[in-house]
Design a protein around this nucleic acid. Structure first.
Length: 922
DNA sequence: CACGGCAATTTTTTT
DNA sequence: AATTGCCGTG
């Protein structure tokens, strides 16, 4: 049982008035939020679905979820329906809201940063890019060159509070073009999902049924809203929050204004600072107690925050309340002659401190510090980390660098890029072979001529008129298969083979990104465009292959940016490269937002350019990551005239009484280094689980390495059918029973097949209409017996192992029994030989959701001659299935994911990736 | 104080 | 790519 401070207890107990929790660094805010939510769930009449909690990242959401589930289990025992409590990002929430309640958006898919840029460039005129005026000498924005900037403009216009009278007309016209274009293509970019959700929340109910449905749901179901990291909420997100609490739901915001570090993405400190003025009757609770760090670290952190002018801060005063002891010499501010010397000292210090006694918890047994207890935080990893990386590598100290886009630097990826240079004739076959030899990518005994033949036929663009024949992903997979590319065929040790495969898999993702946008382009243009993109754009986007391998956290020194360190902590933190013009960073030149959107149109335009206060907040975050040891260092770069002076931040740290400027010997006891044990969270979607049960090696290829199946022209058919049926059943729940005559319009609304050529599209459309009509014929009578449609389920199998999924349909049979129904259609069915085990996962989920058991499970095939199977839920199997999921989760953590021992016709035969696994046997 | 040379960051968000 | 602002020099 955790004990709470008075302030914490007060925050936890405040449930009926608007609450603002001002949480200093290390004040145990996640625990407080979790406990507060557990208290909410304990209230009579409150259902989990009444609670919505927002986090900034998915990772933070997973942690919070796990913490809440743990508390609920110990304090309340079995609570049903926990799957319906939303804990996640605002983006995820907005998308989910729309795709549950607004039928017109069911077919929309989401553009990532990368695909969004590809999309804008592909449609450079229609997207408004090349007609968007600037005040710079270059005139309008240019294709490829300015598309990133254009994306930022498009975001700001939606996310920020804009005074449209000051925005040039041409900019507005471009913006309108883009909005029409993404809508025509049924696409959401990240901002758009929130933007559209906000429109429904703020919309006039008299205008449209969907607005009514959304607002009624909010009014009826949402009673408690919690927003974590509130300081980083932008104006559009603030409107989403307002929309959710507009009917009287309780709002609790948690944040620290001093940690506002994403202002260049639209967050505005004023939002958190003036919260109490904007909502009536706000209760403010300040969590001043820092349990994370020693007194010295806390005092230095507080002094940094106090550099921020008062008007921009909420009053607070962080105090040390934890068990870490400050000692003279724990905190140092040092100067070096050059970056190499600085890096050398850091490496020395890490080696010297390894094994130092350190206690994680008050009164807990001390352990020896290990590599993963050290973090080196840079303002700019890409500019400043090189000397340190070199030093650590030479000494054999394990480390992971976050935030570097280095995938394309590796010889392996260069060799793969070579394939496409060969296809478009910029290199010849011999040069290509050389690249593959140099990269050590030729499997033992492979037949190069056979592989080359695949490429030769691939670049014969006259061979077929059907564009889909020139599928880049298929060509890539065929080439690898022709080479007999198997993990165990590659030269080198197992670790290097795994890394090589990881890189090949990442490249498959690169292809997918490009092909999602350019699938239907004329083959020759498509391949030349791809080769160009690989040269000029893609290298800036993709992180090194080993950046995020698997689930196991390695025992390694962390090298990261301050931004990435947010929310994390380490016993020892190094803050190097504290030079003027670096940290605080100087503003950037070039064509920037101000050339497109005048300052007058935006409130507080300075935040997009970066201010000293913003940098100070970032430095505050950096300092407060440390639990005990903190080393601020700097060294001039002689060759760069702007990087020869000390940072004011270094001066600030050096002037603190807690900090020494001369190194003294390390006094603490020595123990054997022992990394802090952390169990990685495993969250599996139902489809991931399906692959994991089916063949764990296929799971590895797909989800860990990243291999993607080739895009199929009919993609979207199964989803469209599915969505049409979902609408039928959702309407039935509202008492609106549809009939056969709407089949045509349902398919019209839901079927979206962006990769199909016109004839195929028409075929799919009529097939879809027939399938829906057939459904009305055979199941029309049962539509009224719908219990749930598209029901979210969550199975918490063991601490840290969760399965998320969605049941298509739950309905009552004439016999009075409850049936769980899973829809299948050709397109979805191909690899989907759903087994009893998998279906029983649904049954387990249903039980966790409602507390009662389903009676039968039905697989309903929507195809012409497809047959429906129905079988009883086998109670004893439910427990066995839980065990099986548990074992699968453990195997994942151990990275124990072998292929099937022998060829299995049912499974291997339909696997898109067998070519990377074993000889085909058919 | 004016001028020319030089070098210019951070990155989250979906199935 | 180019515009912006820092730094050193005159």
């Amino acid at each position: 049982m955790t004990t709470y401070t008075d302030a914490q207890a007060e925050a936890i107990a405040t449930l009926d008035e608007p609450l603002q929790i001002i949480a200093c660094a290390g004040s145990g805010k996640t625990q407080v939020i979790s406990q507060r939510i557990a208290s909410i769930l304990a209230r009579p009449g409150v259902e989990p679905r009444n609670v919505v909690a927002f986090t900034f990242t998915e990772k933070a959401a997973a942690e919070l979820k796990e913490r809440i589930l743990g508390l609920v289990e110990t304090e309340l025992g079995d609570v049903t329906g926990l799957a319906e409590m939303y804990v996640g990002t605002m983006h995820g929430y907005a998308l989910d809201l729309l795709q549950r309640l607004v039928p017109d958006t069911f077919k929309f898919s989401v553009l990532t940063d990368i695909t969004n840029q590809l999309f804008i460039d592909r449609y450079s005129a229609k997207s408004g890019l090349t007609s968007c005026p600037t005040s710079s000498a270059q005139g309008a924005l240019r294709r490829y060159r300015n598309s990133k900037l254009y994306m930022q403009i498009l975001n700001v216009l939606r996310e920020d509070t804009i005074d449209a009278t000051h925005v040039p007309e041409g900019v507005i016209e471009s913006f309108d073009k883009y909005m029409t274009l993404i809508d025509d293509h049924a696409l959401f970019d990240y901002t758009q999902m929130i933007n559209v959700a906000v429109q429904y929340l703020e919309g006039d109910p008299y205008e449209d049924d969907d607005v009514v449905r959304v607002q009624e749901h909010v009014e009826r179901d949402i009673q408690y809203v919690v927003v974590d990291e509130y300081q980083d909420v932008n104006p559009l997100q603030e409107r989403l929050v307002r929309g959710l609490v507009q009917f009287g739901a309780n709002l609790c915001v948690v944040g620290d204004d001093d940690q506002t570090i994403y202002q260049w993405r639209g967050s505005q400190v004023a939002n958190i600072v003036t919260f109490a003025d904007r909502y009536a009757g706000v209760k403010q609770v300040t969590l001043d107690d820092n349990f994370r760090s020693s007194r010295g670290v806390v005092e230095v952190g507080r002094s940094v925050a106090e550099r921020i002018p008062g008007g921009q801060r909420l009053p607070k005063s962080m105090v040390a309340a934890g068990h870490q002891q400050w000692g003279r010499g724990d905190m140092l501010a040092l100067e070096f002659d050059d970056p190499a010397g600085e890096a050398g000292w850091i490496a020395d210090r890490i080696e010297a401190m390894s094994g130092l006694a350190f206690a994680d918890t008050p009164g807990g047994d001390p352990r020896g510090l290990s590599w993963s207890d050290f973090a080196v935080l840079f303002r700019s990893v890409s500019n400043d980390s090189e000397p340190l990386v070199k030093e650590l590598r030479e000494r054999g100290i394990p480390f992971i660098v976050k935030g570097l886009n280095k995938l394309f630097d590796s010889p392996e990826i260069q060799a793969v890029v070579g394939i496409f240079e060969f296809i478009v004739n910029t290199i010849d076959a011999d040069a290509l072979k050389l690249m593959w030899e140099d990269a050590q990518l030729l499997p033992v005994g492979s037949d190069w001529a056979k592989a080359l033949a695949v490429l030769e036929s691939g670049r014969d663009f006259g061979a077929s008129k059907r564009h889909a024949v020139y599928n880049i992903q298929r060509l890539y997979l065929d080439f690898l298969e022709a080479l007999d590319m198997r993990e165990d065929n590659l030269p080198g040790a197992p670790v290097r083979r795994e890394l090589a495969f990881y890189q090949l898999g990442k490249f498959s993702q690169v292809i997918s990104d490009y092909e999602q946008i350019y699938f239907t382009t004329e083959p020759k243009a498509k391949y030349t465009g791809f080769a160009q993109w690989l040269r000029f754009q893609a290298p800036g986007y993709y992180a090194d292959a080993d950046a995020d391998v698997g689930y196991a956290t390695p025992d390694a020194v962390t090298i990261a940016t301050v931004h990435q360190s947010k929310g994390l902590q380490w016993p020892a933190v190094f803050l190097p490269a504290l030079r003027q013009n670096r940290f605080p960073a100087r503003v950037m030149g070039g064509v920037s937002m101000r050339h497109v959107i005048p300052d007058a149109a935006i409130q507080d335009p300075g935040r997009y350019r970066g201010t000293v206060e913003d940098e100070t907040r970032l430095f505050y975050v950096a300092v407060t990551r440390s639990q005990k040891y903190l080393f601020a260092t700097w060294a001039p770069i002689q060759s760069n005239q702007q990087q020869r002076r000390r940072s004011v931040f270094w001066d600030h740290v050096a002037a603190q009484q807690w900090v020494s400027t001369v190194v003294s010997p390390l006094l603490s006891d020595r123990l054997a280094p022992q990394p802090r044990h952390e169990t990685p969270q495993v969250t599996l979607s139902f489809s991931e689980l399906k692959y994991l049960f089916e063949c764990s090696y296929q799971f590895k290829l797909r989800f860990l390495y990243g291999f993607n199946a080739p895009i199929h022209e009919a993609l979207g058919y199964g989803k469209g059918l599915h969505d049409a049926l979902a609408e039928i059943h959702k309407r039935a729940l509202e008492g609106d029973i549809l009939t056969k005559d709407v089949a045509e319009s349902l398919i019209g609304r839901h079927l979206h097949t962006p990769f199909a050529y016109p004839t195929l599209r028409e075929q799919l459309r009529s097939a879809g209409v027939k399938a829906v009509e057939r459904y009305f014929d055979t199941h029309g009578r049962e539509i009224a017996q719908t219990e749930f449609s598209e029901k979210q389920i969550r199975v918490h199998v063991a601490p840290g192992i969760t399965v998320d999924g969605r049941i298509d349909l739950i309905r009552r049979l004439d016999t009075g029994e409850t049936a769980i129904v899973d829809f299948k259609s050709t397109e979805r069915a191909q690899a989907e030989d759903v087994t009893r085990d998998q279906l029983h996962v649904y049954a387990v989920g249903y039980k966790e959701l409602t507390g009662s058991s389903a009676d039968v499970i039905e697989v309903l095939n929507l195809d012409d001659k497809g047959k429906t199977t129905r079988e009883p839920v086998h109670e004893p199997l439910l427990e066995a299935v839980r065990d099986k999921i548990h074992d699968a989760g453990e195997a994942l953590r151990r990275n124990d994911l072998p292929r099937l021992p022998v060829w299995d016709d049912g499974r291997c035969g339909s696997c898109d990736l067998v070519g990377l696994c074993r000889e085909r046997l058919s």
